[in-house]
């Protein structure tokens, strides 16, 4: 495989992680449009740690994720009181608030003959941990997918355990869930915290594989993509999110790039079509069942 294909593997990996961060929260019936804000926190924190403090990418990434999760946890509590449209608006506002925070954030130090660090509206440049440490595109792709696989596996396992059933129960009917003794506060805040952590991880990788970040990267468009992957893929299981990230990034964005102008017009139209004909996603429970029947597998193995 060539450099370009490995590059695509990286992008699909990062966007899968981004989608999974929204997936966890969506399971509890909450739509979070704040994911881009959590991604920004992970990106800036991890970037500052590798560039200014010269940390290794792994501890920097985990710290970025933790920083984002702390904030997500704090957001989770007030989010308990509101739902539906109110939550969508509140999380949009929160995401924008975080973006504007980094727009106003200036912290630079001299390193050798250059000054490095985030510089407000100019962005944060030269986050070159990967190329400076000899990581090839392939190495980075493998790294991204090791991280993505750990998150996928954890969420998949959680989905099948009692925790997953609890999350889904809250998502389907809060009152019913509460009446069987589920603590809504714990469940919803935990989902937000986990979603924030995962988004922070995605941000840490994003900062390093683009080498330059600025506040405009973390706009509402990114937040929309985060919820688009699980909704388009379907909430039946984690594979839907993975499939949707692949579908959008590889098929719609990359393969259709050759169509030129038509591609962008098709993008919106495709989303509308999918939501009309497969409202529960490309990989909904129904589609999965049909696929299994068609492939002649009675009970799917652990794939």
């Amino acid at each position: 495989m060539d450099d370009f294909t490995w590059g695509m593997v990286q992008i699909v990996g990062v966007h899968t992680i981004l989608g999974l961060s929204a997936y966890v929260i969506l399971l509890t019936g909450q739509v979070s449009m704040a994911q881009a804000g959590f991604v920004a926190i992970g990106a800036y924190v991890a970037g500052m740690l590798t560039v200014l403090a010269e940390w290794h990418i792994i501890p920097a990434m985990v710290t970025g994720g933790l920083a984002a999760s702390v904030l997500a946890c704090i957001v989770g509590f007030p989010a308990l009181r509101i739902r539906g449209l109110m939550l969508v608006v509140a999380t949009i506002a929160f995401g924008e608030f975080v973006r504007l925070f980094w727009f106003n954030f200036d912290y630079r130090i001299a390193k050798g003959d250059i000054v490095v660090g985030p510089e407000g509206g100019e962005g944060f440049k030269q986050i070159r941990f990967f190329p400076e440490n000899g990581w090839t595109t392939q190495d980075v792709a493998v790294f991204v997918w090791v991280v993505a696989a750990i998150i996928l596996a954890t969420l998949w396992w959680m989905d099948r355990s009692r925790a997953g059933k609890v999350l889904r129960a809250v998502g389907e009917d809060e009152m019913a869930a509460q009446s069987v003794g589920i603590n809504l506060t714990v469940v919803k805040v935990a989902a937000f915290t986990a979603g924030g952590f995962i988004a922070g991880i995605a941000g840490a990788i994003y900062a390093h594989y683009t080498t330059h970040i600025e506040h405009l990267n973390f706009d509402i468009l990114m937040a929309t993509f985060a919820i688009a992957y699980p909704i388009l893929g379907g909430l039946a299981n984690v594979w839907g999110t993975l499939f949707a990230a692949f579908f959008i990034q590889v098929i719609v964005i990359e393969v259709l790039r050759d169509l030129g102008d038509v591609r962008n017009l098709m993008f919106g139209a495709l989303i509308i079509l999918v939501m009309n004909f497969l409202p529960h996603g490309l990989f909904s429970a129904k589609v999965v069942r049909k696929l299994k029947e068609w492939m002649g597998i009675g009970k799917m193995s652990d794939a």
Binding site: N264, G268, I271, N276
Partner: peptide, 14 residues
Amino acid sequence: ELATLMATVGAFFL
């Protein structure tokens, strides 16, 4: 409502 929400996002892009 998620399907509708997403469809309106698609309409926005379009």
